[in-house]
Design a protein around this nucleic acid. Structure first.
Lengths: 144, 144
DNA sequence: CTTTTAAATGATACTAACTATCATTAAACT
DNA sequence: AGTTTAATGATAGTTAGTATCATTTAAAAG
């Protein structure tokens, strides 16, 4: 038995707990996200689910981001990508060659933020950190 | 005599050194950026410089980003912002209330990246970090 | 200085990633 | 089953850019 990284039922249950209606479309979006390995775009999902309107896809992704069930991040040029969340308080590595997105968890990032509390005027309410990489697969490929 | 944080002549000289032509439009975009305090959008610049075409504004901003003379960053919702660079290897704090953007320099961030070298599969080629805050001015204002 | 030439510009149209509107549909509570 | 109100989808609009290409102009050459 393998682990269930992001269970559809978790996501659906979380939406339900938030007082939202569980519609067929929302189930389909959640299921489509689970089928994706790394990152994906909103248009990926919209193209895959022809029976679900584009507006609904965007609305559902926004709900999932707000519920911390998925993350919205950006490539170096600003192109938005989404990624299913597996662990809390993580950050992302993004391969600039193949677009693969991985989560990583590093407590030192949290330590940096605490040290910034002394350095930054004002109250820290959030942060974003992305590390851009050339992943092992791309480095090992013939085009190296 | 006050310091010249980002001198127009620096930016123009850098573009010139890169073998680019120094046009009136590029001078105007650089001058407009210098007049801005914190962050700004491409449309801010385009609206301010009616004599310069929108496409040229976007093209020039891209050149300046590539030359590390300005940074492109994003608000929590992904809205892109630009900010003139004053120091190297810095990161940004963005006030989620008033949009003020400040640079900060923290060597611990660089230390985190070095520690990630051991944790992340692949080669780190870049990173982005933004800290979202409520700035002192907004915290101190009546609406607190 | 004038000529040359290739880079830069601006107008226009286009794309990507959303967001607003609003009539219609359907969860889910009773 | 009936009611209510959230959710949907079609459409149009917005924001942030990019592509095309005829025209202009910086700057190198003569």
């Amino acid at each position: 038995m393998t682990s269930t990284p992001t269970s559809q039922f978790d996501a659906i249950a979380t939406l339900e707990d938030a007082g939202l209606r569980i519609t067929g479309q929302r189930r389909q979006v959640v299921a489509a996200i689970e089928r994706k390995g790394g990152g994906f775009t909103a248009e990926d999902i919209a193209a895959e689910l022809e029976g679900v309107g584009r507006a609904t896809v965007y609305r559902t992704l926004k709900l999932l981001v707000e519920a911390d069930l998925i993350c919205k991040l950006a490539l170096p040029d600003g192109t938005p990508m989404y990624s299913a969340s597996r662990v809390e308080h993580h950050h992302h590595s993004v391969c600039t060659s193949c677009g693969a997105i991985e989560e990583f968890r590093d407590t030192t990032v949290e330590r940096v933020l605490r040290s910034l509390t002394r350095e930054i005027e004002g109250e820290i309410v959030g942060h974003r950190m992305e590390v851009f990489i050339r992943c092992r697969k791309c480095l090992d490929s013939p085009s190296g």
